[in-house]
């Protein structure tokens, strides 16, 4: 049965981490240094050594997880230990600093460590949160199937639009051309650009309906209360308002086709939204690693420099 790495072996590594933390706090509380608390007291050196060894060991996880078969411990047990001891490191390193913070190399190492740990915690949250959201959002479709369905809807829309008229066809073509999925990291994660695109799509559709009016050739068309594209922010209801009005006029067949087209466009929009959410969730699940891994290497460099520097000027 599947067991989360968080509860691995009855929270074995949580216990280890808690014991390490408790011992560190106890030692910090009991030990009275001859100078203000700092990394250079005996306790400071001890906690610093533990912290440095922890960082090396935590970094080794990056190597270890690529070798599934080697060693007696499973990758899951490594991950469990990695997560809990990584969080304990935050405490050990903070006590090592003696809460002395300044604008220097040592603070750089500490800050990098904090960011790496924070990104790791985000990773835990992401792994706990997004898989279920992804499953729910996908409605048992794969990403490929979603793309395929979008393509099918586009195909249906363009066919239908060609039957309605050249202008309708042009607008649908433009809409298809402008549909963007994913993009830059920011676009994948934020959805900001997509919102803009969506608005354009809505506008195009209202435009489409507006332009349909003369195509129907209704005698009362010019006098109809026809909202402009910009007048009503609730464009969707505008669409249906237009569609309702069209229904009353002659050219029933084209009106029916326009309704069908609008249905297709709505379905596509929902599908595109779902696909974008899927990309966003996957992006968030991956993105933290792009912080976690490079900064942990930067931390290794800063840690090396930190250790050399403090003994250089002993």
């Amino acid at each position: 049965m599947h067991q989360s790495f968080l509860v691995y072996k009855g929270f074995r590594y949580l216990k280890v981490a808690l014991i390490l933390s408790a011992l560190s706090i106890f030692a910090y509380a009991v030990y009275i240094p001859t100078e203000p608390p700092n990394g250079g007291t005996w306790l400071g050196y001890t906690l610093g050594t533990i912290g440095a060894l922890l960082i090396l060991w935590l970094l080794w996880f990056g190597v270890r997880k690529r070798k599934f078969s080697r060693g007696s411990a499973t990758t899951q047990s490594w991950l469990s230990a990695h997560v809990y001891l990584g969080m304990a490191l935050l405490l050990v390193a903070t006590l090592h600093s003696g809460f002395q913070f300044a604008w220097n190399l040592h603070m750089l190492a500490y800050s990098l460590m904090v960011i790496v740990i924070a990104s790791g915690i985000f990773g835990i949250v992401a792994y706990a949160r997004y898989p279920s959201l992804i499953t729910a959002n996908r409605e048992s479709q794969t990403r490929e199937q979603m793309f395929e369905e979008i393509a099918n809807l586009d195909q249906a829309a363009v066919t239908l639009a060609a039957q309605i008229g050249d202008q309708a066809h042009q607008i649908i073509l433009r809409s298809i051309n402008r549909t963007k999925i994913g993009g830059s990291v920011w676009a994948q994660i934020s959805g900001k650009e997509q919102e803009k695109e969506d608005e354009m799509e809505e506008e195009q559709l209202v435009e489409l309906a507006t332009q349909m009016m003369p195509a129907i050739g209704s005698p009362n068309a010019p006098t109809m209360a026809m909202p402009s594209a910009n007048a009503d922010p609730d464009s969707e209801s505008t669409l249906f308002f237009v569609a309702q009005n069209l229904a009353g006029s002659h050219g029933q067949e084209r009106v029916q086709k326009l309704r069908d087209l609008l249905d297709i466009v709505r379905s596509k929009k929902m599908l595109v939204d779902r696909l974008r959410r899927d990309i966003r969730y996957h992006g968030l699940m991956q993105l933290w690693l792009y912080v976690h891994v490079p900064l942990s290497l930067a931390l290794l460099a800063a840690l090396t420099a930190h250790i050399i520097a403090v003994f250089f000027y002993w």
Binding site: R143, I150, A151, L173, I176, T179, I181, Q188, G283, Q286
Partner: peptide, 13 residues
Amino acid sequence: PSADLREKSKTTI
């Protein structure tokens, strides 16, 4: 017409 949407879209980091 939109068959290449999949290809031109960057969907992973």
